[in-house]
Simulated assay, not measured.
Amino acid sequence: MARNKRLFFALWPDQEVRSQLAGLQTLLPQVQGNWVHPMDLHITLQFLGSVPVNQQHCILQAASAVQAVPFALEINHLDFWPKPRIAWAGPEKTPEELLRLVKTLGRNLRECGCKPEKSPYRPHVTLLRKTTPGMALVLPQPVFWPVEHFVLAESCPGSEPPWYKIVESWPLS
């Protein structure tokens, strides 16, 4: 029987970038919290939540219609957000190409009945969840991430990590 899936669109790093992102976790104070499994490191583009089966095909078509160009991210900042209690890494400046990708994807998804996020888009890689406040830090050696595709991923929490699996991938061209 088909079921709802907990879905999100994301930038998914290759193995080299993933290793560098996982290495950033060692820069964080060794505090309490839930470390994100290295295979789960990503940057969310659009969080969809629980998607009914009858909406999933439309979402795949909406993503297939996205036209965006490859770009590079410079992950050069570590910080902490108190309300969700996460330590994260991200770019100091968001590339215009990334903002256009997010906007185009969001516009296409509205045709499927998906509601846009209310808060402004802030690209980040969550490194640690449910943690105590930490200090902001500019990285001495940034992580350069060439972005050449985006993915639709499914969240499957509750089992052994990694909790996310790629459902589909689309190239940027």
Rank of each mutant, 00 (worst) to 15 (best):
M135N: 10
N34C: 06
L21T: 06
V102D: 01
P70I: 02
I75C: 11
G134Q: 14
V51Q: 03
E96K: 09
A62D: 01
R3P: 00
P95I: 08
G106D: 01
E92L: 12
F71V: 00
H42G: 13
P162F: 15
V17K: 02
L98W: 02
K118R: 15
A2D: 00
G158Q: 00
F144C: 10
L139G: 13
R85F: 05
T131E: 08
R18S: 09
R85M: 02
E148A: 02
L78I: 12
L127W: 04
V167W: 04
L7I: 06
P123T: 08
L137V: 10
R129M: 10
P146V: 08
R18K: 15
L128W: 06
W163E: 07
I86N: 01
L48T: 00
V125W: 00
E92F: 02
V66G: 00
E74W: 04
E168I: 03
G158I: 01
T104I: 12
G134L: 13
K93F: 08
L27W: 08
A65W: 03
S159Y: 12
Q61I: 02
L152Q: 06
I43N: 03
A89H: 06
L7P: 09
A10D: 09
V36L: 02
F8K: 14
G113T: 14
L45F: 07
S50I: 00
K83R: 15
V51R: 05
L139R: 10
Q15E: 14
G90E: 12
N108C: 01
E97F: 00
V17L: 05
H42E: 11
M39Q: 15
L128C: 01
P82C: 04
E160K: 15
L7E: 05
N108E: 05
P52L: 13
V36P: 03
E168A: 14
A10F: 12
G106N: 01
P91H: 10
V167S: 06
I43V: 15
Q20A: 15
P120W: 03
G90L: 13
G158P: 04
P82V: 08
K118E: 13
F80Y: 15
P91N: 10
P123E: 04
F71N: 00
L109G: 03
E148M: 09
M1H: 13
L137R: 08
N54Y: 09
